[in-house]
Design a protein around this nucleic acid. Sequence first.
RNA 1: GGGAGCAUAGCUCAGCUGGUUCAGAGCGCAUGCCUUACAAGCAUGAGGUCACAGGUUCGAACCCUGUUGUUCCCACCA
Length: 919
Amino acid sequence: MQQSKICIFAVSNPFVTNITNPSPMSTIAPKYDPRAVEEKWYRFWLEKKLFHSEPDHRKAYTVVIPPPNVTGVLHMGHMLNNTIQDVLVRRARMSGRNACWVPGTDHASIATEAKVVNMLKEQGIDKRTLTREQFMEHAWQWKEEHGGIILKQLRRLGASCDWDRTAFTMDPIRYESVIQVFVDLYNKGLIYRGARMVNWDPKALTAVSDEEVIYKESHSKLFYLRYYIDGTPIAASEQNAVKENEKGSYIIVATTRPETILGDTAVCVHPDDPRYSQLKGCRVIVPAVGRSVPVIMDEYVDREFGTGALKITPAHDINDYNLGLKHQLETIDIFNDNGTLNEKGGSYAGMDRFACRKQIVKDLEEAGLIEKIEDYTNKVGHSERTDAVIEPKLSTQWFLKMTDIAGRALQVVEDDTIRFHPAKFKNTYRHWLENIKDWCISRQLWWGQRIPAYYFEHDGKTCTVVAVTREEALKQARAVSPDLADDKLQQDDDVLDTWFSSWLWPISLFDGIRHPDNEEIRYYYPTDDLITAPDIIFFWVARMIMAGEEYRGQVPFHNVYFTGIVRDKLGCKMSKSLGNSPDPIALIDRYGADGVRMGMLLTAPAGNDLPFDEAICEQGRNFSNKIWNALRLVKGWQVSDEMKQSADNATAVEWIEQRIACVLADIERDFDEYRLSEALMAAYKLIWDDFCSWYLEMIKPAYGSPVDRETYIATLTVFERLMCILHPFMPFVTEEVWHSLRERCDGATIMLQHYPHSVFFDPRTLSEFDTAKDLIAGVRNLRNSKNLPPKEPLQLTLHPTDGSCAAEGRFDGIICKLANLSALKRNADKPEGTVNFMVGTIECYIPLSSKVDTEAELKRLHDELHYAEGFLASVMKKLANEKFINGAPAQVVANERKKQADAESKIAALKNQIEAIGK
RNA sequence: GGGAGCAUAGCUCAGCUGGUUCAGAGCGCAUGCCUUACAAGCAUGAGGUCACAGGUUCGAACCCUGUUGUUCCCACCA
């Protein structure tokens, strides 16, 4: 295409240095290619340090990333979560806030240690042959080489994190913060050490917290075992539960874990159970083991379950443990840490617990000690990290007392100091906090913050001191035991639960634990929004709130946005093990980051699960392309300085400006309510429908004709504003288009433009256009149904039944253009030989050159009449009801009367038309 | 076992204080179009007993009760 040179005038827009000559369309590719664009702009943003934040006079807007595991790779959940954060951060930044989004990773004790152990194994190194220091060296090396891939991947998504602030939960500041907090809580008497029944992960060889145990339904067996009565036999009868055979009398006990009989120290029945009343004070023989154990009575037993008799294994079940304490039973621990049987297991020693179960069942069967075996479904606890079946195990661990700290954390959510989006999670949160138990914070691992507790012997007893440094601990210990040798002070071998560092994240990121009064913590804390998944509401959200209250006396954030879980089309949770999760980077390669971001956001209302279908990314990609083509159109126009702006173009510009103001009001409300998918959809429709399909078609010059400069400039301005509105959602394509619209100063970026806000708009312009739109659609519909070629101009005559459109409309010229009319007459005589349709109360007539199908027309008119009469009847019924007239608000009644009038005039018009055709 | 949520078009979801946003949106589908920005497009259209059954009200998708289905959370029933 040839492009004529057009002289350029200076304009007063401060962001514009020059208005470019409209470029020939051929220089802009017809399809948008996200790859090069995305790479270019991300590099630009980084080079200009546009994501970096320092405290200044502006109001801060702070988000801390939920730190992904340092071992992790990006999955769809991260994509969703980080897209949402980026949208909020970018919008805040454009709205004049000093936005700071702090990235980082989590050291993830169990997961990372397992990875390192595996890596060592591949190299032929057994962890047990290494010292703690050697192991840590390997682990750190691994972390430096392979850790944090995920943060690099986030850049592809467009995440505007302040990378200069990238933190790690085990870097020096965070490490020291954790230790300091431990010492502080210990000194406050909130941390204690004790022997308790804990959830033991036999694979990771560590205790885990209650929250890290996942109960899964499993199909197992219920074994009914014979416990023979020790000593004087009791005769079997109808009234008791005693059975007899040639070997003697016995009772039956049901269990799902027959291998634990090796640790049985009692059998328990309900004190009021008549079937067992004769057994009071008796002893029974544990099958296969041959040990004699007492029959005890306790109301804990459910008489309905099994046989009503329960075997008690205090070392391997939390309830049995409690009963053991109450009845002073012996505790026999039969397992090693790795889940194999120890020497207490006798001939089973060394076997794995599950192999042992099989063997012991076989042995019991052979010995005739099994009454029967039933299928049974129950819930079995598995480790969240390793999926190993959790073994309740008695061990010495560190705990944090939760009751006090939890009360305050509940309060701030109850009174909406912290808002949950959606609010339904308040219930879940409340329920957990009201039933909270002490938090087991020690882990038998090396990768993590080592517990700063030190032990020494004094007067034959083990004493404990807790201090930030070894030197300090030694000083404290010597205060008790002045002659204590340095090497007699032993540090605890365990590390802290990973969440014990994550819970400090919003504070420790700004070094607010070590230096509570530093400038950064005072400026950035409390943070604003936390975006996370509901499955870590207890692990992380609740505990951060506790830490915030404890260490800042202030909530850590004001809003928590809970994302849904990303599922596949069939509704299954996406996971690596199922192999149903698409690779996010491959998706970005295919659809562009903007396309994927839009796809994720469109299907993700807060708190709702997200049934992810790759096809929706296509919609996002298509949208990018649509915008790109709008750019091609506008930049392809020749601009004339001689032409005056037409009245129609002036109207078009006025309308689109009003329309933007109107939609912006909706978008602002959506953001206030964290309804991001709705905000994006509103922007999508504003750009695609209002701007592209309506506005650009209104002002589009005829082929070969130029557009007047005034309209052209207004269009660029509108286009820019639309790009600003969309930028938080689709950062790359908007930056590219924004730069292509006008020549920019060096370093200019859409990222720092002001986010447009809604201004007053006149609803009359909008409703006038809605009528125009209906008229245009009516004509187009007629063309479609009558098979009229779009290129053939038509004449339209309007006849208002209520005088509403008598005057010439501002949109008449636009209607003619978009409906391809040669003439638009108002209030003229009804022409002969026309087809007609109604828009509201306006009768519309179009003369047809071809023959009109009278039959079909009549049928259509009769159908419409029938509907209108039915509608009128229902309105009249309402108006005839005195209670309605008296009870309903005046506005509602008036509205019904308007409906009545409109329906009546419409009916009259339809009758006229039918009559006219009939003639 | 206890608790919470959800059920609206083929799919995913809006629908705020019961009445002018009242039955909506996007996608998909159908029909016709390669109309000089875009077929990754344009135009037009069809689609719903608002889960079911009662109740309150002049009036219910919306409030109440029950039923069914479904999802999630919590809990130590061997």
